[in-house]
Amino acid sequence: DDRETIMNEFKQIHQQPNKEAAIKVLHVFYDYPKQIRASIYSTNMIESFNNVIKRKAKSKAEFPTEQSLDTFIGIQAMSYNERYFNRIHKGFGQVQDTLESYFD
């Protein structure tokens, strides 16, 4: 749930007008434990999900309505979440207590 918020914070680094301003924003990245920095910087999980959507949508020539496309993507997202619900991404298991303390 918090991935979007975190990614938006990182995007601020790239949107800064100069190096000095970017360095001031960069401190956000280093607030997170070292074990998970590579995972939260990467878009591998998002790209993986996008590939699932593309692969499954390929067999369907077109969707009759926008609602049918929304339904299809929603079903794929729920299926993907169920399949990977218990998966702990690289580094997150090591710092779970630390991460949970951020949200207390």
Rank of each mutant, 00 (worst) to 15 (best):
Q12P: 00
I13H: 02
I13W: 01
I13G: 01
I13M: 00
I13L: 04
H14A: 13
H14N: 12
Q15T: 09
Q15W: 08
Q16L: 05
Q16M: 10
Q16F: 02
Q16W: 02
Q16H: 03
P17M: 09
P17Y: 07
P17Q: 08
P17S: 11
P17G: 07
P17V: 09
P17H: 07
N18D: 15
N18P: 03
N18G: 04
N18E: 05
N18M: 05
K19Q: 11
K19T: 13
K19S: 09
K19L: 15
E20C: 05
E20T: 09
E20F: 07
A21T: 06
A21E: 15
A21D: 10
A21P: 01
A21K: 12
A22H: 01
A22E: 01
A22G: 00
A22M: 03
I23L: 08
I23K: 12
K24G: 05
K24D: 08
K24L: 10
K24A: 12
K24C: 06
V25R: 01
V25K: 02
L26K: 07
L26M: 11
L26I: 09
L26W: 05
H27T: 15
H27Y: 10
H27N: 14
H27C: 11
H27W: 08
H27L: 09
V28W: 12
V28H: 10
V28C: 12
V28N: 13
V28E: 13
F29Y: 08
F29K: 03
F29D: 01
F29G: 00
Y30E: 12
Y30T: 15
Y30W: 15
Y30S: 10
D31K: 13
D31P: 03
D31N: 14
Y32L: 14
Y32D: 01
Y32K: 02
Y32V: 07
P33K: 01
P33C: 05
P33Q: 04
P33Y: 03
K34E: 14
K34A: 11
K34I: 14
K34G: 04
I36R: 02
I36C: 02
R37M: 06
R37Y: 04
R37N: 05
R37I: 05
R37H: 00
A38H: 10
A38E: 14
A38N: 14
A38Q: 14
S39T: 15
S39W: 04
I40D: 00
I40A: 03
I40W: 03
Y41C: 14
Y41S: 13
Y41K: 08
Y41N: 10
Y41D: 09
Y41T: 06
Y41V: 05
S42K: 04
S42C: 06
S42R: 04
S42T: 05
S42P: 04
N44M: 13
N44P: 03
N44Y: 11
N44K: 12
M45T: 05
M45Y: 12
M45E: 15
M45Q: 15
M45I: 07
I46T: 14
I46V: 15
I46E: 14
E47H: 06
E47K: 06
E47T: 05
E47L: 06
E47S: 05
E47D: 07
S48L: 13
S48T: 10
S48F: 08
S48E: 09
S48M: 10
F49C: 00
N50Y: 09
N50R: 02
N50Q: 08
